[in-house]
Amino acid sequence: MARAPRSGPYVCGIDAALDVVSGKWKGLILWELHAHRVRRFAELRRGLPGVSEKMLTQHLRELEEDGLVHREVHAEVPPRVEYSLTEDGRSLNRALAPLGDWGTERVRREGLATATLPEDVA
């Protein structure tokens, strides 16, 4: 299911950028693909504790539509589907890095809780 088209023009660059990463899981999907280069659906789901299959599917489709994620289907039985970042996805991750640094510092400063991920995910 395609996303509804935006109802009006972008106000600024931040508006346009947040439009493609809005949603709880999109930034984390980009982070997971950056960390591991190529991931299958089940690997992504394991790397994002709490994401539902439906939400992961929806966000992957939107990221693909926005040109940030590449979906490759291998002609095998059973079919193997792999996800990776496009050049636009990699450049967005570079742009988001300072925001991540800010968030890490905020977590440290405020003593906020963080998730503990399994070693093969972290």
Rank of each mutant, 00 (worst) to 15 (best):
S91W: 09
S22D: 09
R39V: 03
R40Y: 05
K54I: 08
C12H: 11
E43D: 13
G103W: 03
A113N: 04
D88F: 06
E119T: 09
A95W: 10
D66S: 00
R40I: 00
R37C: 05
A113I: 08
V69Q: 07
V81I: 07
T104W: 11
L99N: 08
K24S: 01
E64S: 15
Q58V: 11
R61K: 15
K54G: 00
A35G: 09
P118E: 08
D101T: 10
E62V: 12
R106E: 00
L96R: 08
L85D: 10
S91V: 10
V21W: 07
Y83T: 03
W31Q: 07
V121K: 10
V69A: 06
L48I: 06
V107N: 01
K24I: 07
I14Q: 10
D101K: 09
Q58S: 13
G47D: 07
D120M: 11
L30S: 04
A115E: 14
G8T: 13
L48Y: 01
E105H: 04
K54R: 14
G47W: 02
R6Y: 01
D19W: 03
A16Q: 05
G47T: 08
D15W: 14
R90W: 03
A122G: 14
G100T: 07
V77Q: 13
E76P: 01
L112I: 09
R46L: 10
K26I: 01
N93M: 15
R39T: 07
E119K: 14
T104S: 13
Y10D: 09
L117Y: 14
Q58E: 13
V11R: 15
H70S: 10
D66Y: 08
E105F: 00
H59Q: 14
L28W: 04
V51A: 10
L30G: 02
G23A: 01
L28T: 05
P78F: 12
S7Q: 11
W25C: 02
V73W: 01
P79K: 02
K54D: 11
A95L: 15
C12K: 06
V69C: 10
H74F: 03
L56V: 09
E82Q: 10
R46G: 01
W102D: 09
G111M: 03
G103Y: 04
W31M: 08
G111Y: 00
L28R: 15
G103K: 00
E32W: 00
E62A: 13
I29M: 03
L33R: 03
C12Y: 03
K24P: 04
E64H: 13
